[in-house]
């Protein structure tokens, strides 16, 4: 039975498993193309992360909900994206992601210092643009884009900081 099978299917295992230099070169060139495609994909992804991203507008507070020097926590655009709304000067509203860019501790607003402070590792961010003032955070806080309308303050998008270049 085995002899008959060998005659009908004369497959030499060693020959079948042999990889020639040409085949190996082809495979490695294919792998090289795959790596290049992956790198192009990463580059494209890095571009989409930059700049402003617009989301569905959401009302986050009324005009009288935040007093001058005060702050208010909210979530935007997803429920788990915690943010903080502040009013450093009368009529001037700013909002930032509340997650410290170091290890994601929630930041607090310090009106007298005009900064957002992370108590975990003494990181601090400017209230003007979310840029890093001190401490270990590697980059600025994402800023929530606001629109002040007649019926309240609306979040309309998120802008990544200037150091995301």
């Amino acid at each position: 039975m085995d002899d008959r099978l060998s005659k009908e299917f004369p497959i030499d295992w060693e020959e079948d498993n042999y990889v020639s230099r040409r085949e190996f070169f082809k495979f490695m060139t294919l792998a090289s193309g795959g790596l290049a495609l992956g790198s192009v994909g990463l580059a494209a992804w890095s571009q989409t992360k930059r700049g402003e991203v617009r989301f569905e507008p959401a009302r986050i507070a009324g005009m009288t909900d935040v007093e001058v020097g005060g702050s208010l926590g909210f979530s935007y655009p997803r429920p788990k994206d915690i943010c903080i709304l502040v009013q450093p000067e009368p009529g001037k509203y700013m909002a930032f992601s509340r997650r410290c860019t170091h290890l994601s501790c929630p930041v607090n607003y310090e009106h007298d210092q005009k900064r957002l402070f992370c108590p975990c590792h003494n990181g601090a961010f400017s209230i003007e643009d979310g840029s890093v003032l001190q401490g270990p955070p590697p980059h600025s806080l994402p800023q929530v884009i606001l629109e002040v309308r007649d019926d309240g303050i609306f979040a309309v998008g998120v802008s990544h900081g200037a150091d995301h270049s």
């Binding site: 790596l35 890095s46 571009q47």
Partner: peptide, 14 residues
């Protein structure tokens, strides 16, 4: 969070 290296790396890889 450093996005500036992605494009030069992709160009060299291609």
């Amino acid at each position: 969070g450093k996005f500036s290296v992605a494009i030069p790396a992709a160009v060299v890889s291609v």
